Amino acid sequence: MAAGGDHGSPDSYRSPLASRYASPEMCFVFSDRYKFRTWRQLWLWLAEAEQTLGLPITDEQIQEMKSNLENIDFKMAAEEEKRLRHDVMAHVHTFGHCCPKAAGIIHLGATSCYVGDNTDLIILRNALDLLLPKLARVISRLADFAKERASLPTLGFTHFQPAQLTTVGKRCCLWIQDLCMDLQNLKRVRDDLRFRGVKGTTGTQASFLQLFEGDDHKVEQLDKMVTEKAGFKRAFIITGQTYTRKVDIEVLSVLASLGASVHKICTDIRLLANLKEMEEPFEKQQIGSSAMPYKRNPMRSERCCSLARHLMTLVMDPLQTASVQWFERTLDDSANRRICLAEAFLTADTILNTLQNISEGLVVYPKVIERRIRQELPFMATENIIMAMVKAGGSRQDCHEKIRVLSQQAASVVKQEGGDNDLIERIQVDAYFSPIHSQLDHLLDPSSFTGRASQQVQRFLEEEVYPLLKPYESVMKVKAELCL
C-alpha cells in the first residue's frame, strides 16, 4: 500500500493539533497551500530580480507567473513527485505547466533550498508574528487579574506546605514575570531571523556568478533584492546548502521555554482548584465526569500541561538535527523538520489560546482563602504575639514557653481530632496574655502579614508589564474561544 493518505478522510490519521486544537490561522501558515504558494512567490521574486539585473526574462513571463501564483494543481504535483521522487522539481514542473512561456526560467540558477529553506524562514517569521500578540493578550488578562487582587491576602506555599502570606495578585505576578520573559525572547528570536537568500547549491553562489558572467556586484544585488522582497532586513552571508540548523534550535528553545512557563502556571491553577481557592472557567453544560456528576475538573489547565510537556520535548529534535548536518548538509534534517517545526508552533498556539481562555474567566473564592488563612495564621502570628507581650512588660522566655504549650495543644486538636485551630481562643482565655487581649485582632490582621506584596504588584505592572504590552494595544480586544 502506498504511503500517505487522504487526510480529510475519517479513515486516515490526522494530527489532533490540526484537527482538534490549533487555530485556523496557525494551521494555514503550515498548510501545503501556504507552503507551495510561497515557493511560487519566491520563484517570481527571483525572476523579477534577475530581470532587473539584466537576464533575458520578459515582462510577459513575469506576468504569467504572477497570474498563476494561486493556480496550484495539487493532484498534478503529487503525481509528479511520485514520478520524480523530488518535491521541488515536482512543483517546478507543475508551475511550468500553467506558465508555459515562463517554464524555462522558473528556478533559474537556484537549488531546492532556495524555495525550501527560504519558505521555512518566512513561515517561522509569520508563525512567530501570530504567537506574539496571543502571548501579549494572556499577559494582559493576567495583569488585569493581578491588579484587581493585588491586596487580597492568601496563604503562600513553599514545598506545598503553608508559608508566609502573600497576595493573590502577587502570586499571579510570578506567572506574568515568566511570560514577559517569554514574550521578550519570542520577539528577540523573531527579529534575529535572517533570510537564507540566493546562495546556490553549497552556499557559494557559483551558479549565479556564472549567470551574471562573473559580476560579483550583481550577485550581491540579486541576494539583497530577493531578501528585501521577502520582507527581511538581512540575509546570511555564510550558508551551506541550507541555512544553519542552529536557527531551528533557537526558535524551538524559546517555544519550549514558553511551554515550561505555561505548565507551571496551569499546575498552580490545578492545585488551587483542589484547594477550592480558584477555578478555571466551567461552562453551564460542561460535564466533569461521566460517573461523578459533582466533579469540576480543571480540564483546560490539564490540557495545557499535557501539550506543554510535548512542546518542551520537541527542542531535542533540532538539537540532534543540527549535530548531524555533515559538511554542507545531509538530508537527516528533512523529514524531522517537516514534523517538529509545525508541531512546535501548533502546540504553542494551542496552549496560548487555551491559557487566554482560562485567564479571561478565572474565578476566585475569597471566603475559602480566608478560612485557610484562619487555619494557619495563628501559628504564624506567634512571633508577633511574643513581641507584643514583651512590649507590655512580659518575659520573652516565659511567653515563648506559654505559646509553645498552647500551640501544641491547638495542633493536637487540628491533627488528632480534625478540629479547627483554636490557638487564639486559648490565648484569649489565658490570664497571662490579658495585657494584649485587646491587640489580638490587630495582630491577626492578614494584611499585616503580606509585606509589600501589593506595592510590588503595582510597581511591576507599571514599570515592566504595561510598557512591554504597549506595541500590542491594537490587538488586545480579541477574545479566545474554545470549541473543545
Rank of each mutant, 00 (worst) to 15 (best):
A3N: 03
G4V: 14
G5E: 09
D6A: 13
H7M: 14
P10T: 09
D11G: 01
Y13R: 12
Y13I: 13
A18N: 14
R20H: 05
S23A: 15
P24K: 13
C27K: 01
F28H: 08
F28P: 01
F28A: 10
F28W: 06
V29I: 07
F30G: 06
S31V: 12
S31W: 00
S31G: 08
D32C: 06
R33P: 05
R33A: 12
Y34A: 11
Y34L: 04
F36T: 07
F36A: 14
W39S: 05
L42V: 04
L44F: 14
L46R: 06
E50D: 09
T52K: 04
L53A: 05
L53Q: 02
G54Q: 08
G54Y: 15
L55M: 04
L55E: 08
L55Y: 05
E60F: 08
I62E: 02
E79K: 15
E79C: 05
E80N: 03
E81C: 06
L84K: 06
R85S: 08
R85F: 00
H86V: 08
H86E: 08
H86K: 07
V88A: 13
V92C: 12
H93Q: 12
C99L: 11
K101R: 04
I105N: 09
L108S: 08
A110T: 07
Y114D: 03
G116I: 03
N118C: 15
N118Q: 11
T119N: 14
T119H: 05
D120Y: 00
I123L: 04
I123G: 02
L124M: 08
L132N: 11
L132P: 12
K134V: 12
K134W: 06
R141M: 13
A143C: 09
D144G: 11
F145D: 00
F145R: 13
A146E: 01
A146L: 00
K147W: 15
K147F: 01
L152W: 04
T154A: 04
L155T: 04
G156M: 02
T158I: 04
H159Q: 02
F160G: 02
P162S: 08
Q164C: 04
L165D: 08
V168A: 10
G169Q: 04
K170F: 00
C172G: 13
C172W: 04
C173Q: 01
I176Y: 03
Q177K: 12
C180T: 06
M181L: 05
D182G: 03
D182F: 06
L183T: 09
N185I: 01
N185T: 02
N185E: 05
V189T: 05
D191Q: 02
F195C: 09
G197N: 15
V198T: 12
T201K: 07
T201P: 12
T202M: 11
G203Q: 10
T204K: 01
Q205L: 01
E213Q: 13
E213W: 06
E213S: 04
D215R: 10
K218P: 10
V219A: 09
E220M: 14
Q221F: 11
L222K: 06
L222R: 05
K224G: 02
M225C: 01
F232C: 04
F232M: 14
F232V: 09
R234N: 09
Y243I: 14
T244P: 01
T244W: 06
R245E: 06
R245Q: 15
R245T: 10
L252H: 09
L252R: 04
L252A: 13
S253D: 07
V254I: 10
V254G: 13
V254K: 05
L255T: 14
A256W: 05
A256E: 15
S257C: 13
S257Y: 09
S257L: 13
L258Q: 04
S261A: 09
S261D: 12
V262G: 11
I265G: 10
D268S: 02
R270C: 02
L271W: 10
A273W: 03
N274R: 03
E277D: 06
E280V: 03
F282H: 07
F282Y: 11
K284S: 00
K284A: 06
Q286H: 06
I287D: 03
G288Q: 02
A291K: 10
R296H: 12
N297C: 05
N297H: 12
M299N: 09
M299V: 09
E302I: 10
C304S: 11
C305V: 02
S306N: 01
S306A: 05
A308D: 12
A308E: 10
A308K: 06
H310T: 08
H310G: 06
H310K: 12
H310E: 05
L311Y: 01
L311N: 03
M312T: 12
T313C: 14
M316F: 00
Q320Y: 07
A322P: 02
A322V: 05
S323N: 07
S323Y: 12
V324W: 05
Q325N: 14
Q325L: 06
W326Y: 11
F327C: 06
E328W: 06
D333A: 15
N336W: 03
R338S: 03
C340T: 00
C340P: 07
L341V: 09
A342G: 08
F345G: 07
L346A: 05
T347C: 14
D349C: 10
I351W: 07
I351T: 06
I351C: 07
L352K: 11
N353Y: 02
N353H: 08
T354M: 13
S359F: 04
E360C: 00
E360H: 14
Y365I: 08
I369S: 09
I369V: 09
R374V: 13
Q375N: 04
E376S: 05
L377H: 11
F379C: 14
A381W: 06
E383K: 01
E383P: 14
E383V: 12
M387S: 09
M387V: 13
A392N: 15
S395V: 02
Q397F: 09
Q397G: 05
Q397L: 13
Q397E: 09
C399F: 10
H400W: 04
K402C: 12
V405W: 15
V405Q: 15
L406C: 12
S407C: 07
Q408H: 10
A410R: 15
A411L: 14
A411H: 08
S412G: 12
K415C: 15
Q416P: 11
D422R: 02
D422K: 15
L423F: 15
E425F: 13
E425Q: 14
V429M: 14
Y432P: 02
Y432Q: 00
Y432A: 07
F433T: 12
I436G: 11
H437E: 06
Q439C: 15
Q439N: 10
L443V: 15
D445K: 08
S447C: 12
F449M: 12
F449Y: 10
R452D: 01
Q456H: 11
R459E: 12
F460E: 13
E464S: 13
P467F: 00
K470I: 08
K470N: 07
Y472A: 10
V475R: 10
V475T: 05
E481D: 10
E481P: 14
E481G: 12
L482A: 14
L482W: 11
C483Y: 04
L484R: 13
